[in-house]
Design a protein around this nucleic acid. Structure first.
Length: 479
RNA sequence: GGCCUCAUAGUAUAAUGGUUAGUACAACGGGUUUUCAUCCCGUCAAUGUGGGUUCAAUUCCCGCUGAGGUCACCA
């Protein structure tokens, strides 16, 4: 079955990790079945509309590699894809309900409705507007809210994640379908749009589960076939058990791009938060996900958002891209993450630095802190040297002597490469009768003054003879 | 309050009416010529609770507890 799915966000801000899964899963199902993915912008709430939010949404989807077949930018046969431009369509469908006696104009002032609600709350009984239906509603005209007229009855349905569901008549009510301002409510608009656009799978957060009976009533009254319903459990905030939202500091998805997270890792992490294919595999590319994803293996309970696993996955992906797609591929992703000091260096040199440092990166932004000394002479810090845990047993004279021996040895080295350097370093160990921890720590610190760095021979090879000797000399002089 | 949903280590999860309840992240310890990381090895750690069905329940049923959702002219 070719699935027509959609992601239908409202343009009220950025997409965050708490809600992006309702874009990923529909995408995977659409691609897996050779169907279509639709992007629809639900902008019927003019008050919450945020200028530029649509761009943010599109940017997020593009970064994650979730392309859409119909929607803004790409167009399609069922447009427009902004609900605000579809008012006449909703009105046409609404009139069908009026004609069938299943909708009525409701001029009741908001204060009156609030009073009814307060009354019910005081009596601790459920508030159902259908118990307060106006007796002689006027004919509907723009400017008056239009309500669906419920005919409550029990419903059963199947949810692809939650299983077989049922609800009693007490869950159905006279919901507003057209607002006073003429725009439809979500409750009505999504049903009309999904039908017009041929959507087969309605995938959204579980918070809509309790509204399903109302939607079922609407499908019936409009003589529409029910789409498959898929409720996605919430992603929970790191602290507490609430669903992750902006108030919990949920960052926008694209903010992770700036933090040096790879799109592959983000997609991998989010798709596997609350879903697994039953194997012990942890690493999934987009293609793997499309191949293996299935609705019936989505968890029924919420999943807590935990960044440590994302960081681990990101490290995995950094190494995977380097080894499988090559250093150029990783270098391409690393653009914009180099320290300022790297600006004047050419790509070949930076690529070489990347080649020896990449397996230490958790995020691309680690490059800033971790590679500075490849581009700029470090500040000589004699205290750090003599207080190092491997060097503090040695006198300053001894350190100076070791540095000088190293300088002589490396100055006379024929070919300057990783292998010859390793050989030279090894003979230096024998000659000085020092442990690797002592001699290598000394050289490493003298050329980098960094808390950690790649293997010593690789570091020196990359720095080059002149820089290495110069740095060793300036440390020897400073002691 | 009504209705609905959920419940395996700190986290994400696997599994089966019968296993020593598996895996990964994290934590901790160890190994690889310095450091950090990778990689490898190891340690710690879970079926919320009370009943029932059954020879046998983490798994099926019921109660409880806990957590969450929803009850808008928001989506």
């Amino acid at each position: 079955m070719k699935a027509i799915t959609r992601f239908a966000p409202s343009p009220t801000g950025y997409i965050h990790i708490g809600n992006v899964r309702s874009a990923i899963y529909p995408y995977l199902i659409a691609r897996q079945t050779g169907g279509k993915m639709i992007l629809r912008i639900e902008d019927t709430d003019r008050e919450r509309f945020v200028e530029g939010a649509t761009d943010l949404i599109e940017d997020t989807l593009k970064w994650l590699g979730l392309d859409w077949d119909e929607g803004p930018i790409v167009g399609g046969p069922h447009g427009p894809y902004f609900q605000s431009e579809r008012k006449d369509i909703y009105e046409t469908w609404a009139k069908k309900l009026i004609a069938a006696g299943r909708a009525y104009a409701d001029p009741t002032p908001k204060e009156q409705i609030d009073a009814y609600r307060a009354e019910c709350n005081a009596k601790k009984i459920p508030f159902l507007y259908r118990n307060f239906r106006p007796e002689n509603p006027p004919e509907w005209q723009p400017g008056i809210p239009l309500r669906f007229k419920a005919e409550p009855k029990p419903y059963t349905w199947h949810d692809e994640v939650m299983g077989d569901m049922h609800a009693g008549p007490e869950t159905e009510d006279d919901i507003i379908i057209l607002k006073k301002d003429g725009y439809p409510t979500y409750n009505f608009a999504h049903i009309v749009d999904d039908a017009e656009m041929g959507v087969t799978h309605v995938m959204r957060g579980v918070e809509y589960l309790s509204s399903v009976p109302n939607y079922l009533a609407l499908y019936e009254a409009l003589h529409l076939e029910r789409p498959r319903l898929v409720s996605l459990p919430h992603i929970l905030a790191p602290n507490g058990n609430k669903k992750l939202g902006k108030r919990d500091g949920a960052k926008s998805v694209t903010e992770y791009r700036e933090d040096g997270i790879l799109a592959e890792a983000m997609l991998n992490y989010l798709a596997c938060l609350g879903w697994n294919d039953g194997t012990e595999n942890e690493i999934y590319s987009k293609a793997d996900l499309i191949k293996h994803f299935s609705l019936d293996r989505i968890q029924t309970s919420g999943a807590r958002y935990d960044e440590t696993k994302l960081l681990w996955l990101n490290g995995q992906w950094i190494r995977k891209i380097f080894t499988e797609q090559g250093k150029e591929a990783l270098f391409e992703r690393a653009k914009g993450f180099w320290p300022d000091s790297a600006a004047s260096f050419d790509d070949d040199y930076k690529m070489q630095v990347l080649s020896i440092i990449y397996d230490r990166l958790k995020t691309l932004s680690d490059l800033k802190e971790m590679t500075d000394y490849f581009f700029k002479d470090p500040t000589v810090d004699v205290d750090a040297l003599v207080n190092n845990k491997f060097l503090k047993k040695m006198s300053e004279a001894e350190i100076e002597s070791l540095l000088k021996k190293t300088i002589v040895s490396l100055s006379n080295l024929g070919t300057w490469n990783a292998d010859s350097l390793q050989e030279a370093l090894n003979s230096l160990l024998e000659e000085t009768n020092k442990k690797p921890a002592e001699l290598f720590s000394l050289i490493r610190l003298a050329v980098s003054f960094a808390p950690f760095s790649p293997a010593l021979n690789l570091t020196l090879e990359t720095l080059g003879r002149d820089t290495t000797i110069a740095r060793l000399n300036s440390v020897a002089r400073a002691i």
